Each structure stands twice: as C-alpha cells, then as structure tokens.
Amino acid sequence: MNIFRLAGDMTHLFSVLVLLLKIHTIKSCAGISLKTQELYALVFTTRYLDIFTDFISLYNTVMKLIFLGSSFSIVWYIRRHKIVRRSYDKDQDTFRHYFLVIPCLVLAVFINHKFTFKEVMWTFSLYLEAVAILPQLVLLQRTRNIDNLTGQYVFLLGAYRALYILNWIYRHFTEPHYVHWITWIAGVVQTLLYADFFYYYFQSWKNNEKLQLPA
C-alpha cells in the first residue's frame, strides 16, 4: 500500500468520524442529506459482497466493516433516533436519489470488466459512489449556511477521492499493466462534482468566514 492510498483511506475514515461526532455528540443531523447517506449504504453493501468469502488482509476487512457499519448507523440515526431525526430537514432534502440508482445499475450491466453478479455489483457501486454526493451538494446549496462539522465532512469526502486519484496515478507508473478505466473515470467524475464546493470552502478558510454556497 502506498502513501496516497493510506492517506485516502484515513481521510475517508475521518470524514465518517466527523459526521458520527456531529450526530452522536450534538444530536443533530442538520444540513446532512439522508438521501446521500442511503446511497452510500447501498454503495458499500454492493461493493463488499465478498467480505465473508474473499480475505485480502485484516486491514481490508476491518475497513470494510467500518464503512458498512457506519453507513447504516448514520441512516438509522437520521431515520429512527428520536432526537436526531427532529433536526432532519426533509423539506429541503428532496433530491430524487432513486433516479441515480437505476441509470448506474443499467450502466454497470452493460459496461463492466466481467459479466458476473459480483463484478456487476462492484461496478455499480463505483458508478453510484461517483454521484452519491449530489443530494448532499444540492441540500447545501439550498440551505446555504453550513456549520463547521458539515463543511469538514463534505471536504474530507472530496479530499479522499482526490487522494485516490493520486494513488491511481502512482500505481500506474509503478505497477506493470495497471489499468482500470472504469474506476478512474468514475473517480474523476466524483472529484469534479466537488470542484465548486472546494472553491467556496477554501475561500471561506482564506477569509476566515463562515462557509456559504451560492443559491
């Protein structure tokens, strides 16, 4: 494992911890899109179908369990926790996320490395992860005022994917025949979706102002 892959994994893990800290400690999910969290739960479920059949390493298995457990925990908190769910802004979080699921599934069926159930589901998870942040970004544009923890959560998610792109570039030049076009294209699309958010995040940091996105 190279430094970019490790940094990407740790950044991804920190993003989840930041979100769980906000929900569990402050008992609030204000500014958090349930639609995005449900999409991430679906992403990890379909990506890690091999968790009990294919052992790669202890590190790999532990990370899979963490992301599976945390994603479903977050969805449970927002949907079922009596205090947390009161802060969920259902009227603003109206992105029809199922419109993302079906095209990604169709694309995975027709464009994949190998036409097997696991491979199609793994490819589907890549396509879906690329666009899963859209409901969250739309919600932030509608609410505009973003608290620090929510801003840090979204920034860390974007940074994780950017670090993975560096990981792929590094592996392409250090590992013979390392080519994964589907993964690369999905990752680049996902990172580009964060471009606008990154701009305003760094502007707020530079000017020491509260993060706001244009309507």
Rank of each mutant, 00 (worst) to 15 (best):
L156W: 12
K118W: 04
F110H: 08
D147V: 06
Y127K: 10
A159W: 09
P135Q: 12
F115Y: 12
Q92I: 04
V154D: 01
N112C: 03
G158Q: 05
A159G: 02
N148W: 14
T123N: 14
I146G: 08
F99H: 04
A159D: 00
E129M: 09
I102V: 15
T143W: 00
M121I: 07
Q141F: 12
F117E: 03
P103C: 07
R142F: 05
Y127T: 04
Y127V: 10
F155W: 08
C104P: 01
Y98D: 08
L105G: 14
L105W: 05
F117M: 03
I102Q: 10
V120C: 07
K118S: 15
E129G: 03
Q152K: 03
L157N: 13
A108W: 07
L134A: 08
Q152C: 14
D93M: 03
D93E: 02
V120I: 15
L163E: 09
N148T: 13
F110R: 00
L137W: 01
Y160V: 03
T150L: 07
V138A: 08
N112F: 09
N145A: 10
L128W: 12
V131L: 15
T143M: 13
T116G: 08
Q141A: 04
I165G: 09
K118P: 06
A159Q: 11
Y160P: 01
L139S: 03
W122C: 10
W122F: 13
F95S: 02
G151K: 07
I146D: 10
A108L: 02
V120W: 01
T123L: 11
M121L: 15
Y160T: 05
K90V: 14
Q136I: 02
L166F: 14
L163H: 01
G158D: 06
L107H: 06
I133F: 13
H113M: 04
D147Q: 11
V109F: 15
F110Y: 13
